[in-house]
């Protein structure tokens, strides 16, 4: 029976699930000599969690120490990052780190950390996608059509987004502002409910992530653009925002960071282990199935990207007058 090895692997994994997957004793360097805590600021089973588990699992093999995934959702991800900022910089506490929490979050509400100073970015391995989608039956065939409609009919176009201050909101808002067009933003608390509202005909457009793709495949929804500077293999004809002539894109990076003041040698070890893990077919498979973009930034680049995107998103939030810049 072909399925037999699967069963026995499952039994092995069952033991792993009780604690963490252990791969003891293969490392030779002094670091790491004990398990590494890997904080995930989101609930288990979500896209970010699944990619973190996938990359963590492979890197753990290489480092010779298990990665203990600790899901600590709460306060929009700030709870976990606050813990990370205060943790000992010994390389035994790491966290998933992304643009939403670190580069946008601090402009939306008071955070117990300074995103630019209180973390050591280790590397970035992916990015979230942001599509602008309309129903196939909608009159807008291109992004230009949509923008022109929003310009001619201020605030009539309704745009479903996951949340105020989400990258989907900031990207669409920037697009509207640049073209002197106006849309009414309707937050749905997540991408999936916005997709449902689009399919149900309650919305003009939805600015969402990979959850829209099944409906693009079924022909019910048309994508107008991707706000990241990337291509989606499955839809080669889809032009991204830069290809459509804009000189910006949405930098919604996802990576791994540690506490401030980490030993550069430890950062190097981790950076190499995670970088190598990106080549693992299982990790690649997870990223593809979850419709995530794969990007790569080393530690130094990740730091530059953090600072740059922090300022960029800050400027958009300020222009929009939301979050900490809400007019009282």
């Amino acid at each position: 029976m072909r399925s037999l090895p699967r069963w026995s692997r499952a039994a092995l994994a069952a033991f792993g699930a009780l604690g963490a997957v252990a791969f003891p004793g293969t490392g030779t360097a002094a670091y790491p000599e004990k398990p590494i805590t890997f904080l995930v600021p989101f609930t288990a089973g979500g896209a970010t969690d699944l990619t973190a588990r996938a990359i963590g699992k492979v890197a753990a093999k290489d480092l010779g120490q298990p990665m203990v995934i600790v899901n600590k959702p709460g306060a929009g991800g700030a709870a976990a990052l606050a813990e990370l900022a205060k943790a000992a910089p010994d390389g035994y506490t790491l966290a998933t780190f992304n643009a939403i929490v670190a580069a946008i979050g601090p402009h939306m509400r008071e955070m117990p950390f300074d995103a630019k100073k209180d973390f050591t970015p280790i590397m970035n391995y992916g990015a979230y996608t942001t599509f602008i989608a309309v129903r196939a039956a909608a009159p807008w065939k291109s992004l230009k059509d949509l923008v022109e409609y929003a310009k001619a009919n201020p605030k009539v176009l309704t745009a479903g987004i996951s949340a105020i201050g989400a990258s989907s909101h900031l990207g669409m808002a920037r697009l509207m502002a640049e073209n002197k067009a106006e849309a009414t933003f309707v937050p749905f608390g997540g991408g999936a409910p916005a997709v449902a509202a689009l399919l149900g005909g309650h919305l003009g457009t939805a600015v969402v992530s990979g959850e829209i793709l099944p409906h693009v495949r079924s022909g019910e929804v048309r994508l107008l653009t991707l706000l990241q500077d990337a291509k989606v293999k499955e839809f080669p004809d889809l032009k991204n925002i830069r290809e459509l002539g804009y000189d910006w894109d949405l930098n919604s990076w996802l990576g791994i960071a540690g506490p401030p003041g980490m030993n550069p040698a430890v950062v190097k070890t981790l950076e190499q282990a995670f970088t190598k893990a990106m080549q693992d077919p299982e990790f690649k498979d997870v990223m593809e199935k979850l419709a995530m973009l794969t990007i790569y930034h080393d530690s130094a680049t990740a730091k530059t990207v953090l600072d740059k995107s922090y300022d960029e998103f800050g400027a958009i939030v300020k222009t929009l007058g939301i979050g900490l810049y809400t007019k009282k």
Binding site: T43, A44, G45, G46, A47, A192, K289, L290
Partner: peptide
């Protein structure tokens, strides 16, 4: 939401074509 993640990892993207 967790089941959705599990389905996608299994290569079964839910949707009209599933």
């Amino acid at each position: 939401a967790v089941l959705l993640g599990a389905l996608m990892i299994q290569g079964l993207a839910p949707g009209p074509l599933l």
